[in-house]
Design a protein around this nucleic acid. Sequence first.
DNA 1: CATCACAGTATCCTTTTCGACACTATGTGC
DNA 2: GCACATAGTGTCGAAAAGGATACTGTGATG
Lengths: 117, 117
Amino acid sequence: MPRKVAKPPTCAGCSVEATLNLIDGKWKIVVLYKLLVGGTLRFNEIRRLIPAVTQRMLTNQLRELEADGLVIRKVYPVVPPRVEYSLSERGRSLEPVIMALKSWGDMNLSSERAQAA
Amino acid sequence: MPRKVAKPPTCAGCSVEATLNLIDGKWKIVVLYKLLVGGTLRFNEIRRLIPAVTQRMLTNQLRELEADGLVIRKVYPVVPPRVEYSLSERGRSLEPVIMALKSWGDMNLSSERAQAA
DNA sequence: CATCACAGTATCCTTTTCGACACTATGTGC
DNA sequence: GCACATAGTGTCGAAAAGGATACTGTGATG
């Protein structure tokens, strides 16, 4: 939700919430995850890795991630434009979070229907 | 986002995304966090712990968490109604995720302005 | 000459989310 | 008799998120 810097924190669960806010938006963690395992990727590479995302959304999410200092955007001024995205230090520091998310999902979502449906 | 069971997964970063979907909605993790550290809580106790949440929202989030099998809702049929919420097994299994979120937040959000603003 | 890929913009429109506010029923305290 | 607390529900409406589609400019390719 926070477009820019965002929101006097609700300060209640606070750091938890604030962290979540950084990675909200339907595609952010997926993008971060892809960059985490895939290293440096070009715009269309990410697009192909996440077929369901639209260009507009991907652009959006990448811009927000960049603004939050989580990914680095490197533009090569060549003629078929070439733009590479990679995780920043800060982005890479999210690895435990992303991985915790992923392993929980791996363990719990296969049996999701059995438990929650 | 998923009200009920939700969404043929985008299956791209998949388990990561799906997990995130379970705890989206502005207040879910805060609630989970409060229940994690606070144990069993009554409706209005949670409300007081998270002053910014409205009743409607809190009710909503609790209902979704219950539907997802993450919290347990126990109603005592006494006359000033008494309803207690606590984490289920499944909910408690999210602890590493919530804690990863929290510790990242604690480490990174104090210096946020310095890095991202 | 027409088309493709690249990395986007721009515009429009629908859906979802969320907050504000009012309302419920009941037992207790004043 | 009145308000209060409990744990909600219901309705309304604004704002945000997100999807669909069309468009840009350039160089290489056919």
